[in-house]
Design a protein around this nucleic acid. Structure first.
Length: 511
RNA sequence: GCUCCUAUAGUGUAGUCCGGUUAAGCAUUUUGGCUUCUCAAGCCAAAGACUCGGGUUCAAAUCCCGAUGGGAGCACCA
C-alpha cells in the first residue's frame, strides 16, 4: 500500500518496441514512486489508431517485468482509476472537450487536413515556412470563431467532420518550475492552437494526457525532454479546465544521445553499432524492423537498470553499483542532470561484467542453460555449474559463456598452429605420452592433485614449464587463452582429457 | 527559419546554488606495469577536461553579459 499521495505514471504509446529512453523514463518514475512511498502507474496511450501496433502493449509489460519495474496500477493489473488504456476512455475526452467549448477556452475548426496542407504550402511559397494555426491565423481559417452560429450549427451536426482546438490566449507568459530545469517560460503568442479532439472523435495526446493525469490524480509528470516545448500548452489546458490548483509538477528528463555523431539515440543505431537499444527482442515482419534487446545481448536486468539509472543521474557520491532497492532509497530528482547523455555502450558492458562477477555460479548456470540448449550442447547441470564457476571472470555478456569456452562443449575445432610448430618436437612428444599416462593414472582426479603431479613430472624430467604448459593448453583447448589448465583438466574429466591429448599429438605431428 | 532547453577529459559524471583550503575528484575507455602456465579478472600507474570572449572581484569552473557549439520541438503522432 502506498504511504504517500504521490502518484506517477509511465505513459508509453504502443507503436512498437519500447526503446531504451522510454525504459529509463519508466525507471525514473518507478524510483521516484518508491523513494517517496508513492504509486507507480502504467497507462497506455493508444489514441492514434493509425499507429497502433499489435503486440506492443505486451512488449511493454514484458519489458517492465524483466527489469523488475512492476506497476501498481495499469492495464491487466487494474486499479481504482481505470481503465488504463486511453482507447477505452474515449467517451470522457469528448465530454471534457465540450466543456472547454462551452466556457470559451476552445473552438470548433472545420479546416480539413488537405486544406491545412494547402495553406502551409501557400505560406511557404510566400517565404513563411512556419505557418501556425494560432491566435493570429485562426481569424482567417474556417472555425467557430469566424463562422456564423448557423454555419457552425450546420457543420457540427449531421456527422460532419470537425476538430476542437485549444484557444490560446493572446500575449500572456506561461511560467512554471520544472523540477530539473528550474523556471521555464513560454509566450502564448508563440504557441499554436493545438488540436484537442481529432475528427475521428479521439483525443490528441495533449487532451488525453491532461484529462487522465487529472482524473488519475497524478502528482508528478516525469517524462522526456521532447515534451518540454508542449508543456506550455499543457499548463494552459489545466488553466482552461480550472485545474491549475491540482496541476502536477513537471520534470523533464535529458535525452539519450547517439553513441557517435549527432542527435538522439534512434532505434536504427542498435543495428548500426551492434548494440542493443531495446530491452527485449522485437520480431517484426521485416528483418530491418526486428531488433535484439539487452536481454538477448546477454545483459542481466540488474546491470541494465544500473547502467540506465546512471545515464542522466548520479547520487553525488562515488558509489556506482546500485541494486534496484538501493536506487529506490537513493534516487532524487534534484540529482538528474540537465544535458543530454550519450549512450555509452562500453559502460553498459562494464556494468554487466561487474554483475556477472558478483553473481554466484549456480545462478549464472541457470541463466546459461537456455543458451547452451539452443546450441544443442549436451551437458549436465553439474558440468555447467563448474563451468560457470571457472569461466565467469572472463565473461562480460552472458553469451560470452558460450564463445569464451566453446571448446569445452564441442571439442577443439581449430589448433593454434603457429604456437605448436614453435614448440613441438619428438622429445616433447615423448614427454606428452608420459604425461598422458600420468593423467590417466591419477587416482584423485582434481585440480590440486593434478597440479602437484604434473609439476612434479615437469621438474622430475628436467623440463621447463614453458615447454609443456602452452602445448598442453593448446592440446585441450586449441588456443593459448583460457582458464587454469588444471581446473580445465578436472572439468573435462579423465577420459576426455586423455582423448584430447591423443588427438592433439597426432595432429601436432603433422604440422 | 522560429521557440525552448543545454554546455567540466573520448564517454558518463562530482564540484557550480552559498566565488578562495582542488591549478578540478570518481568511473569508463586507452596505454604501461605487477601477478600468472596463457588469456581474463584483480591491483598499481600514466594520459586526458572547466566552449570562447568580455565584465564584476584581491580572487571565477563557480556570479553577470554576449557569442559559439550541442539538443529538442514546431502534425487531426505520441
Amino acid at each position: 500500500m502506498p504511504n504517500s499521495n504521490i502518484r506517477v505514471r509511465f505513459a508509453p504509446s504502443p507503436t512498437g518496441p519500447l526503446h531504451i529512453g522510454g525504459v529509463r523514463t519508466a525507471l525514473y518514475n518507478y524510483l521516484f514512486a518508491k523513494k517517496t512511498g508513492g504509486t507507480f502507474i502504467l497507462r497506455i496511450e493508444d489514441t492514434d489508431q493509425g499507429r497502433y501496433v499489435a503486440g506492443a502493449e505486451d512488449y511493454i509489460l514484458k519489458s517492465l517485468k524483466w527489469l523488475g519495474l512492476d506497476p501498481e496500477e495499469g492495464p491487466r493489473i487494474g486499479g481504482e482509476y481505470g481503465p488504463y488504456r486511453q482507447s477505452e476512455r474515449k467517451e470522457m475526452y469528448g465530454k471534457y472537450a465540450m466543456q472547454l467549448i462551452e466556457n470559451g477556452k476552445a473552438y470548433y475548426a472545420f479546416d480539413t487536413p488537405e486544406e491545412l496542407d494547402a495553406k502551409r504550402k501557400e505560406e511557404a511559397a510566400k517565404g513563411n515556412h512556419n505557418f501556425r494555426y494560432d491566435n493570429v491565423t485562426r481569424n482567417e481559417m474556417k472555425n467557430s470563431l469566424t463562422l456564423s452560429d448557423t454555419e457552425v450549427e450546420q457543420l457540427t451536426t449531421n456527422g460532419n467532420k470537425f476538430v476542437i482546438r485549444l484557444k490560446i490566449p493572446v500575449n500572456e507568459a506561461v511560467t512554471f518550475t520544472d523540477l530539473v530545469r528550474e523556471e521555464v517560460t513560454f509566450q502564448t503568442n508563440e504557441l499554436d492552437d493545438k488540436v484537442l479532439l481529432k475528427a475521428d472523435g479521439m483525443p490528441t495526446y495533449h487532451l488525453a494526457n491532461i484529462v487522465d493525469d487529472h482524473l488519475m490524480k497524478i502528482t508528478h509528470v516525469i517524462r522526456g525532454e521532447e515534451w518540454l516545448p508542449s508543456t506550455g500548452h499543457h499548463i494552459l489546458l489545466y488553466r482552461a479546465f480550472g485545474w491549475e490548483g491540482s496541476m502536477p509538477q513537471f520534470a523533464h528528463l535529458p535525452l539519450i544521445l547517439k553513441p557517435f555523431g549527432n542527435g538522439k539515440l534512434s532505434k536504427r543505431d542498435g543495428a548500426k553499432f551492434n548494440m542493443p537499444v531495446f530491452p527485449l527482442a522485437w520480431k517484426a515482419d521485416s528483418e530491418k524492423d526486428s531488433f535484439l534487446g539487452f536481454r538477448e545481448f546477454g545483459f542481466l536486468p540488474e546491470a541494465a537498470i544500473n547502467f540506465l539509472a546512471f545515464l542522466g543521474w548520479n547520487p553525488g557520491t562515488e558509489q556506482e553499483m546500485f541494486s534496484l532497492e538501493e536506487l529506490c532509497e537513493t534516487f532524487s530528482i534534484e540529482k538528474i542532470s540537465k544535458s543530454g547523455a550519450r549512450f555509452d555502450y562500453d559502460k553498459a558492458k562494464w556494468y554487466n561484467q561487474q554483475y556477472v562477477h558478483a553473481t554466484d555460479a549456480a545462478t549464472l548456470a541457470k541463466m546459461t542453460r537456455p543458451l547452451v540448449d539452443v546450441k544443442e550442447y549436451e551437458v549436465s547441470d553439474e558440468f555447467l555449474l563448474s563451468y560457470c564457476d571457472l569461466m565467469k571472470d572472463r565473461v562480460v555478456l552472458l553469451n560470452d559463456f558460450l564463445s569464451e569456452g566453446n571448446y569445452f562443449f564441442e571439442g577443439v575445432r581449430e589448433y593454434d598452429d603457429k604456437n605448436i610448430s614453435k614448440r613441438w618436437n619428438p622429445e616433447i612428444r615423448r614427454s606428452f605420452e608420459a604425461l598422458s599416462e600420468l593423467i590417466n593414472g591419477t587416482a584423485d582426479f582434481n585440480a590440486n592433485s593434478l597440479e602437484t603431479a604434473i609439476k612434479n613430472f615437469i621438474n622430475g624430467n628436467n623440463l621447463k614449464m614453458g615447454q609443456i604448459f602452452p602445448l598442453l593448453r593448446i592440446a585441450l583447448a586449441g588456443t593459448m587463452k583460457g582458464p587454469d589448465v588444471f581446473r580445465m583438466i578436472e572439468l573435462l574429466g579423465k577420459t576426455e582429457t586423455v582423448a584430447r591429448l591423443k588427438k592433439a599429438m597426432d595432429y601436432f605431428d603433422k604440422i
